[in-house]
Structures are given as structure tokens and as C-alpha cells.
Design a protein around this nucleic acid. Structure first.
Lengths: 217, 217
DNA sequence: CGCTGGATTGAGTCCGGTCAAGCCTTGTGG
DNA sequence: CCACAAGGCTTGACCGGACTCAATCCAGCG
């Protein structure tokens, strides 16, 4: 495994510390290769997951191959905590990743009454908020605004540091409802306007926060 | 009020019957005119709402006026039951409507422990599922597929009956991430292919379920 | 050093947006 | 009952942003 994207636990889960602790004690760490599936759509959701290193994406596929990415999960974030009994998206590692896995029933027996429920609740709530923000992006924003929003979001809590982008152009495109070519064009456009600067095609730095913020609207 | 859209309680809320009962006993019925606001975005969410007649939409606005509709709520459905402390969308009646309103704190004191929580949970869960389906529509479907999905959804539980569409073209457009003109064109296209038939511009009947379903993908 | 897969760039097309005209329904007032 | 106005819907002509297809570039790696 390369060191490139192993920013271990740099963004810890803000809530449910006791759950995370229980997962640490009782959970199993599993390694996933790039593009390896963590779970499948319509599979029963009896496990829960937490990203340790790398990054995970949730995707949904149409019969003709069109793909929509629901969300990206960075180290520290919980995922696969569906409200219903089934997974509504499939989940895949988008680069070599390690994920902590634990059976829900085990968590339940080892946690104070309601702790698991609270964690699921917090996660679902955040999930809904993210989906609602995503709707605005997909429904009403231009290609340039979508890409700007995306970079903004990635850079959010990175200070003025260089930000790593574990996902490739295709993943960005499928997240933003665009094509790779359009994503690429918008990125070069943002770069030539000196709004962001790319060290490599997976690493950038924001140069004009105000402009980027205004573009992301 | 015209009789056009008064399909009172034809689609009852499937879960949380005790909550609905409590709302019936303790809630207040309020009438809203077309386009009247039920609650505003970023307003504290201390009330909960249930559509009695008419229809309600939740919307989010961008600074330049672009609008995204989050969801439509038919009679019987609960809305405004946000997970967080604030409303993340504003809600408006899209035609003359009556809405049952009740303060959350009152519900809590009159219901068995956990009943309110369960209702909020069920609603949030359904909300998330709807948002996730919506993402696929906005991210990866063509104009024709979006409109087909929309009609499909409306007609879902209407049998082969004529289906009423309380919302205007602008509302459809803002829900589907399109313009009124495109929506209109797709509707005439679907009609001239004999897939659906419009009695008036707000009332239709599905003629070829299989084709519509395939289009909606 | 060449191979490979991802990223960029270019040329051309097309879907959906824009602008503008016309139509139809509904409601109002003479 | 008709005339007219107003708003919503449809239709047409045109435009442009994003897609498609294809060539090229580039970094990582054997």
C-alpha cells in the first residue's frame, strides 16, 4: 500500500465516541484493494463500517451502466449504517483502504442502551443533509459551479494546505453528474484563472478562497 | 376552494398511527392559500405538519433565484419533521391546502415514550430514501427520463385512473432540474407517442405502463 | 526505455436552455 | 352572455454548454 492517502484518522467522527471505542475494541480491520467492493446494493445491512485509511464511495448503477456516486467517506467516518434493512447503495474502496467492520448485534450487546441507535440516528441525519445539499448541486448548478463546490468541500477543513484528492476524474464526474472531459476542462479553467493550483492531478491548493466560494454559491 | 385537488386522506400515512391520532386530537388545522409559506428555511423546527388536503412543496433558493424543489407532500404525509433544530428547506402550499399543525413538545407529553421519536425516525428514513432516488434522477437521467420518472411516481398508486397533478409546470421543472419549456416538450412528446394521455394539462392517464416504466428506468 | 492507464485537449454534435410569439383556460366585469 | 384581461402552457427558432469521439499527453512502473 502506498502512503499517498493514509491520512489516518485526521478527520475523526465528531459524535458517538463510545461507539467508535466499541468498534476499536471489538471490530475487525479489513483491507480493500482499489475498486474492491465493501458491500453490495440490496444486500442486508447487518454490519457497520468505519473508514480507517483510504476512501470509500457509495454508488448506484443503472442497467445501461450510468453511475451515480452518493457520497465519499474519508477516514474516521461511519458508513453503511442504513436506516432500513437493506443497503441502498453499494460501497467500494476507491483506492487501497482499510475499513473497520463490526456486526451491529455485537455493538448492541456491548453498548449502553440507545448508544447504537443514537449513532445510527446521527449518521442518518448527516447523510440526509449531505444528500439534500447534493440535490441542489445536481439540479441547478452549472458544470463550473459543481466542480467548484466539490473542491470547496474537499478543501473545507484543510486550511491553506495542499489537499489530496484520492478519487479519479471518473469518480468526480459520477458524483457531480458530469463527464470526465467536462470535469477536466473545468479544472484547467479554474487553474488558469489562478483560483486553484494543481501540484499534480490529485493534489491541489486553493489560491482564491473568496472567488471559489462565490463560484460554489 | 375548488374541488379539483381535494383527494382528502386518500393516501394515509402508513406508520405511526398513534402519532396521527394525537395530531387529530390536539393539532390545529390551518388553511394556506396557493404559494403561501408554511415555514421558512433556517427557521427553528419546533412544529410538525401533516397535509390534510392540497399539496405542499419544500424548496431551497439560490441567491440568483434558481430554485430546487426537495419534495412534494400529498394528503396524509408528514413533513417539516427535520432531524436537526432548523428547517433546511422552506415549505409552501402549491395550491390552496389545509395542513394540520402541532407543537412537538405537546406531542411528546401526550404520547407513549418514544412514539414521537419513532415517527421522526420513520419520516427521516423515508426522506433519505426519496432524496437518494432523486439524486439518480438529477445526476444521470435525460430530460425525457426525468419527466417519465415523475409521471410514473405520481401514477404509482393510482391504478389506471386519471391522475391529478396539483403542481404547475414550473414546480415540475424545479423538481426535475429542467426548464418549463423542456418539461412541456417532453410531456407533449410522451403524449404523441401515446404513452400517456392528457385530459387537461393537470390531469393524465397512463396508456403504456411498460414503456413508461422502461423510460423511467 | 517502452507500456499502460489516467488525464488533457480538440473538433464537432446535440440536448436542453433562452427568447419570443401564440394559444388556451379561467375569471371578471360590462 | 360576451369581451377582455391575465396567467399558465405550448410551440418555434436559435443558441450554447456539456457530451461524444478521438487524438495526444503524461506519470508511474516494470
Amino acid at each position: 500500500m502506498t502512503l499517498a492517502y493514509s491520512f489516518e484518522d485526521s478527520r475523526p467522527e465528531p459524535r458517538s465516541p463510545s461507539l467508535v471505542e466499541a468498534m476499536d475494541r471489538l471490530g475487525v480491520r479489513m483491507a480493500f484493494a482499489k475498486d474492491e467492493e465493501v458491500y453490495a446494493q440490496d444486500e442486508p445491512a447487518e454490519l457497520m463500517y468505519r473508514v480507517i485509511s483510504g476512501m470509500v464511495r457509495t454508488t448506484r448503477l443503472m442497467s445501461d451502466g450510468r453511475r451515480q456516486i452518493g457520497e465519499f467517506y474519508a477516514p474516521g467516518q461511519l458508513f453503511g449504517l442504513e436506516a432500513g434493512p437493506m443497503h441502498r447503495y453499494s460501497a467500494e474502496a476507491l483506492c487501497a483502504s482499510t475499513v473497520q467492520v463490526i456486526r451491529r448485534s455485537i455493538v448492541r450487546t456491548h453498548l449502553a442502551e440507545g448508544d447504537l441507535e443514537r449513532a445510527i440516528w446521527d449518521t442518518t441525519q448527516r447523510e440526509l443533509e449531505r444528500a439534500q445539499d447534493h440535490l441542489m448541486v445536481l439540479g441547478r448548478k452549472t458544470a463550473c459551479e459543481r466542480v467548484a463546490s466539490f473542491l470547496m468541500h474537499l478543501a473545507q477543513d484543510g486550511g491553506s494546505e495542499a489537499v489530496d484528492m484520492p478519487m479519479g476524474r471518473q469518480d468526480m464526474a459520477d458524483y457531480l453528474g458530469l463527464t470526465i472531459e467536462t470535469v477536466s476542462r473545468m479544472l484547467t479553467q479554474l487553474q488558469s484563472s489562478k483560483i486553484v493550483e494543481f501540484a499534480s492531478c490529485r493534489k491541489f491548493r486553493v489560491q482564491k478562497w473568496d472567488v471559489l466560494e462565490r463560484l460554489a454559491a
